[in-house]
Design a protein around this nucleic acid. Structure first.
Lengths: 264, 264
DNA sequence: CGTGCACTTGATAGAACTCAAGACAGGTGG
DNA sequence: CCACCTGTCTTGAGTTCTATCAAGTGCACG
């Protein structure tokens, strides 16, 4: 009798993804969780390649990615592309505390995706922070984590070999997906073409392809068919020098080392 | 009779640097400018290699870099270093709107430096934003610009050749220094060792050295003795695909192009 | 059954790294 | 004043890594 929503969920309980993620970042009250669930009430389906935000656009309202993958990226004038980071299901994008904020780069869907308006959330945080302490805290921590991912990305492309880069990225994506319950038992969805991964890691497609094969031959990761399987997560972490970000925990001891102490 | 301050300024009017920078970002009232000037009243001198903030430290108070250069960086466990960005004279670091924010990476001085406490500024922005609209606006814009520089850095190390990277970084630094009046007439101070530049650009020292020589031989940049001279800024900009960031200006036309429109 | 896209493979060139050694400067201490 | 450091920059040679070019495979889709 009752109809299912017109848009069949690609994943069960799309609304739960962001709930899971933010619940882990801070304690949320019941009404805060309800607010998050309400975000998925009016989903919109868009194809792959949809520009969600253009460089220079006003960030007037936040959006929630319910399903599918997206990224933030920029092109050089000769066509070379750099992907800065990936936007995963359950991620918020375009949320900025700064009024009048402007997008610093383009955000584009990489697969077909389901998005929804999250201005209720941004309004709650920006204008009624006192009424939603949990959401505010969780969102800020989430933003902080995003920034940490950006720095990870920089270390990867700046100082790691192709082999290490791929291992590190896979681990990071697995980690992020596991948080929202989309990855488990060393298996994760990975709906990216090799070109996208290459553009994120600063590699050519051909070289990425060979690196992936090397990782598989070494019994570390198997990437194919829209998914990836971690065959040896421990070894992988060693190779990638991977450490899960802990922006929530303060460092207990700060011995104030001077790295290059120079008497001057 | 009257003594000069114990710490002789390396640059004249150190306090003016941040005034110049923020004045360009937003209109500041007289009391706001006075507040900025007051920040340089209690300068502290530190040697090169001083850790200003450690990864995981609480960002409880902002600091102002009055003179000297610093950077944000991270080490891999085997000693490889990635420099994320440079902190120049007149820059604020450790300023974060998020209460309880934690530093995501280490900040270290690269030269001997003069710093001062800027908690007056952070207090004004965080707790009395309404009373300091200009400062608030300018600081937010400044933070936005910093983020844009981070993305530039990512494009450099991810998708540009060594030659382009160096050209781009030099231009960016010149641009930033010119804003605060420390660079002009195509000459800029550059108190960095080649190792530091290499660690920022994801290159080996040797290769950076050769790239610098190539740029000089090509009549583009001359780097030596703590300074750099842009011999052909126009050609340099073409090579580096350099565009000065315009986070303040909104894009006038957003035609909403779909870059890879795919019917799916 | 063609067409397009993603992936794969081989061959080759070029970019960047490593190792090693030397040049040069500034600072230190005898 | 000089010998001696140390850190930085430079140069050469050889190697490794990564990109490019080109062609071919496989699969999904209309």
């Amino acid at each position: 009798m009752s109809r299912l929503p017109a848009i069949a969920p690609e994943y069960p309980d799309q609304a739960e993804l962001i709930v899971r993620r933010l619940t882990k970042a801070a304690d949320l009250a019941h009404d805060e969780i309800e607010l998050l669930r309400s975000l998925s009430e009016a989903p919109e389906r868009v194809p792959a390649g949809t520009e969600l935000i253009g460089e220079g656009d006003r960030l007037h309202e936040a959006k929630l990615l319910l399903a599918g993958w997206a990224c933030r990226q920029r092109y050089l004038s000769d066509g070379r592309r750099q992907i800065f980071d990936f936007i995963l299901p359950g991620d918020i994008y375009g949320l900025c505390l700064r009024p009048q904020a402007v997008a610093l780069c383009t955000a584009v869907t990489l697969t077909r995706a389901t998005i929804s308006n999250a201005s209720v959330l941004s309004d709650a945080i920006v204008n009624h922070a006192d009424g939603y302490p949990g959401l505010t805290s969780a969102s800020l921590m989430s933003a902080s984590t995003d920034e940490a991912y950006l720095l990870n990305q920089m270390v990867r492309i700046g100082r790691q070999t192709a082999y290490e880069r791929v291992a590190h990225l896979i681990l990071e994506l697995y980690h992020r997906l596991a948080i929202v319950g989309l990855a488990a038992d060393n298996y994760m969805p990975l709906p990216l073409t090799q070109e996208m991964i290459a553009d994120a890691l600063g590699l050519s497609i051909v070289h990425l392809n060979r690196t992936l094969q090397q990782l598989r031959r070494d019994g570390l990761v198997e990437v194919r068919g829209g998914g990836a399987r971690l065959l040896d997560p421990g070894k992988l972490r060693t190779i990638a020098d991977f450490r899960a970000p802990h922006v929530t925990t303060r460092r207990l001891e700060n011995n104030g080392v001077r790295l290059h102490a120079v008497a001057t």
